[in-house]
Simulated assay, not measured.
Amino acid sequence: MTIVGSLPNLQVLKLLWSSFVGLEWEPNEGEFLQLKYLRLREINLENWIANSIHFPSLKCLVIERCENLKEIPCGIGEIPTLESIEVSDCRDSVVTSAKQIQEEQQSLGYDDFRVRIVNRS
């Protein structure tokens, strides 16, 4: 992921199925500086350690069918550019963390921030 994160013009990243190997992901500071859209779909990630310095330009986060993911890092909610989070078919704890981020954003006056929860099963 360090090589991918170091791409200077990377704005969209979709990690699907077996494109990410490992149970933990902690990006390095200085990576993903221009990333605006991040989609995680059906990857085995359990622990995600991140905050605003890791994705400083992120606008949209989509997490789909990541059954092992325990939660969305609360530091993601500190990203000033973040506009939306979509969670689909994940653990209740992931949904809860998305809602906590939404509450935090609203308490800071970001009323346009959106969280969308979709459960197809």
Rank of each mutant, 00 (worst) to 15 (best):
V12R: 14
V95K: 14
E42G: 06
E26A: 07
I3C: 14
P8V: 03
F113M: 03
L13C: 04
I3E: 14
W25C: 00
A50P: 00
E26V: 09
N9G: 02
K36V: 05
E86A: 09
I72H: 04
N28S: 08
A50D: 10
S84G: 09
V87I: 13
I85L: 01
R91F: 02
S93F: 02
E78C: 09
I79F: 06
I3V: 15
V115I: 05
D111P: 09
L13N: 11
E42W: 09
R114M: 08
S18P: 00
I49K: 13
V118D: 05
Q105C: 10
P73A: 14
I63W: 02
K14N: 15
K14W: 12
V95Q: 09
N44S: 07
V118M: 08
E67P: 00
R114Y: 05
L108R: 15
N9V: 12
G75W: 06
N9M: 07
G77F: 04
D111T: 13
E86G: 05
L13D: 08
L16S: 08
Q34K: 15
S6I: 02
I101L: 12
Q11F: 01
T2F: 06
S52Q: 15
R116W: 04
G5M: 03
G30K: 05
P8I: 07
E24R: 13
I53R: 14
L38T: 13
V87P: 01
S52P: 08
I72K: 00
N28Q: 13
P8T: 03
W17M: 06
E42M: 12
L58Y: 12
Q100I: 11
C60S: 10
I85T: 04
E67R: 08
I49D: 04
Q11N: 06
G22C: 14
I53D: 12
V4A: 13
I43E: 02
T81D: 04
R120L: 11
S18G: 10
I76W: 00
W48C: 03
V4I: 14
Q102Y: 06
G5Y: 12
L40G: 01
L108S: 08
S93I: 04
I76M: 08
V21Q: 05
L23M: 13
R39T: 15
M1I: 12
P73S: 10
S88V: 15
E103V: 13
P27Q: 03
R41N: 11
V21D: 01
E31A: 02
Q100G: 02
I43S: 02
F32H: 03
T96L: 13
G109N: 10
K70I: 12
L33K: 11
E64C: 11
S97P: 12
G22F: 11
I43Y: 04
I85M: 01
L23V: 13
L10T: 05
P27L: 02
E24I: 08
N119P: 04
K70P: 00
P8R: 03
F55D: 01
L10G: 06
E31H: 07
E78H: 10
S18V: 00
V62K: 05
K14I: 07
N9S: 11
Q11V: 08
